[in-house]
Amino acid sequence: MARIGVKNLTIFPITKDDHEGTTYGTAVKLPPLMKVSLNAKTVEGSLYGDDRQVEGNFGITGYDITVDTTDLKPDQIAALLGHKKDSNGGITVNADDEAPYVAVAFESKRSDGDNQYVVLYKVKFSPLNEEFETKGENITYKTPSLAGKAIARESDGAFKYDVVAKTLPEGWYTTPQKAV
């Protein structure tokens, strides 16, 4: 089915991810979502014998994610990119800043009336690219775009979970959901 909308971008800071399990902090709802792009990163292998390919395999190594929102507040930028916010509300970008890993959840309306709910379990975003433009005869909005990489959780190797449903799965925006 075709997708006809996207909304409710929510992140969950990762507080622990090791062989014993993954735990997440409190959900943070981000400003209105404009677009999400997910591109699977894959590897492939081919086995040849008798002058032809006899085997082929593909695997997922992660996802590239790009998120476009209408705005990002300084505290949200600091939380996503590991920058420090001062008492004036300003952000200092430092060479030693380290973006934390977060889970990312959102939903998309489908043309059949259902919704697709998506969570990526472990994402790290790269620094923002910013663009500014003067106001001329027309107003051109410049909005933030975040690029990141989703990798497998240490605890179970999971990258992503999505489900198609008529109604919001219970707890979807409270904690990252997983297959049952």
Rank of each mutant, 00 (worst) to 15 (best):
N129M: 13
F58P: 00
V118P: 15
H83R: 13
F58H: 10
A99E: 02
S87L: 11
V36F: 01
D64Y: 04
K160Q: 06
K35Q: 12
G21M: 08
L128G: 00
E107P: 04
R110M: 15
D156R: 11
A79P: 05
N115C: 14
D97V: 04
G171D: 02
A40D: 11
I151Y: 00
E170W: 06
I65Q: 03
F12V: 12
D114S: 14
G45I: 01
T15R: 13
K178W: 05
P74M: 12
E130F: 04
V163N: 06
G113V: 12
K85I: 14
Y121I: 07
N138E: 13
Y101V: 03
G157S: 07
A105F: 05
L81V: 03
L80S: 06
L72R: 01
A103N: 06
G89Y: 04
L38T: 03
A165R: 01
A40C: 08
D162E: 13
V164G: 01
E44L: 02
T15H: 12
M34T: 09
S111R: 12
V54W: 02
A103P: 12
N57W: 13
P176C: 09
F125S: 01
L80Q: 06
G25V: 00
L47P: 02
G136Q: 15
D114I: 07
N115I: 13
E107V: 09
L128W: 02
